[in-house]
Simulated scan of single mutants.
Amino acid sequence: MATTSSPPPPPPVNLWVVLTESKRIINAHSRHFLALSVLFLLPLCFSITVYPSVFRLIADQSAASHNSVSLLRGVFHDDQPPPAGADTATVVLLLIAYVVVVTVFNLLAIGSIAYSVFQGFYGRPVKLISAVKSSFTSFFPLLATLISSNFIVFGILLILGFAAFLSTRLIQLIFPGLEIDYASPYFRYVSMVVMLIWIAIVIKLSVNWILAWVVVVVESAWGLTPLKRSKSLVEGMKSVSLSLIFFFAVTQSILVWISTVAASAQIDDDDNGNGETGKLWTNAFFVLQIVITSAFLTILTLYNLAANTVMYMHCKAVHGELAWEIAEEFAREYVSLPFDDGKAPHLVSVAYNNVR
């Protein structure tokens, strides 16, 4: 009696599987993702790369200006303080401009790339106009979700800080003669413990919220709803979420750190050589390292956004949601999703018997 053999089970989802499928989708539509990267990711990554150098240049020029004013005061015995307000205003305006640019381009990139990867995962046509339209359509929902998540994160920090403050006051009430020196090492240790607790909570929240931005784009939700939806989808996949966050956080941070150190070294060389930090921008090595760092950071950010979207699809499959969606579209017992990489199709099978 002949027996029908069932297809082999899919490989367990891990970091490598998510990155491999992300790479396959990106390669299948390389020109499309290149265009999106140039439009949204490159300005974002260039701003992140060049901001530390610009901030250092302004700070050094401000210090040099204050030293010159102090020297003139010593010569002419002028008691008028140096005009530091203009330098402070420049730094604040630069910081505000940096935050605005990074936020806007980051949200636009999420909206366009998440939409494109979602379409590419199903093997549907990926069009640049539709992706750009999705980026602007989902911009304000993404912004509302970002504000909601930041409100929660900084609210937790305020609660921890307030709890630490109440603890010190309670100790002073219990021991009236005890004086707490806020500059003592013990108080710094307490502050460090509070920060470590806050960082641990932020990491846990990041693991639960990793899919929130994809949920906003794909499911047209916003605010707290995508955060709750992401938390439910990540159940059973938290190790993959943590590995994704750790991998991209480490690689991107190392890249930015190397760029910042190289730029600082160039600034120090210019200061020691002729004292004119403005000539840094004509330094070929400085310009080259900015270009290379921005390019690699753009690639990493593209893969980060693509990997989050691919993980969203895998989480839906784990919870039995993906099979129903494919069933409505194809109405077959085992459905294969094509990933056309230009050479050979890549197949992902979803079985119905795991769905109740």
Rank of each mutant, 00 (worst) to 15 (best):
V214C: 03
L72C: 05
K231R: 14
I254M: 14
V69N: 04
D87F: 14
T301K: 12
W222S: 15
T3V: 08
L34K: 09
L297E: 01
F121D: 07
G273N: 10
L170P: 02
G278H: 01
L19R: 06
S22P: 03
L302Q: 04
F151P: 04
I110R: 02
L280G: 05
K231G: 14
F33Q: 04
N308L: 06
V17N: 04
L322E: 03
L244S: 08
S62C: 01
S167W: 11
L72K: 05
F118D: 15
A212N: 06
G111L: 03
V202P: 01
H29N: 14
A265W: 04
L34P: 08
N14R: 10
W324F: 07
V117D: 06
V234M: 15
I129V: 12
F46A: 05
L173G: 01
G275K: 00
P185I: 14
T145F: 00
L146Y: 13
I254P: 08
G320S: 03
F151E: 04
I245W: 13
A221D: 07
S138T: 15
A89N: 12
V250Y: 02
S336M: 06
V104I: 15
A2Q: 04
A295H: 13
T20R: 09
T225S: 10
S5N: 07
I113S: 11
V194L: 10
L297S: 08
A323K: 14
D79H: 14
Y115E: 11
V38A: 10
L93P: 07
V117W: 02
V234C: 11
E179M: 12
T3D: 07
G120C: 02
S206R: 05
A59C: 00
K316S: 00
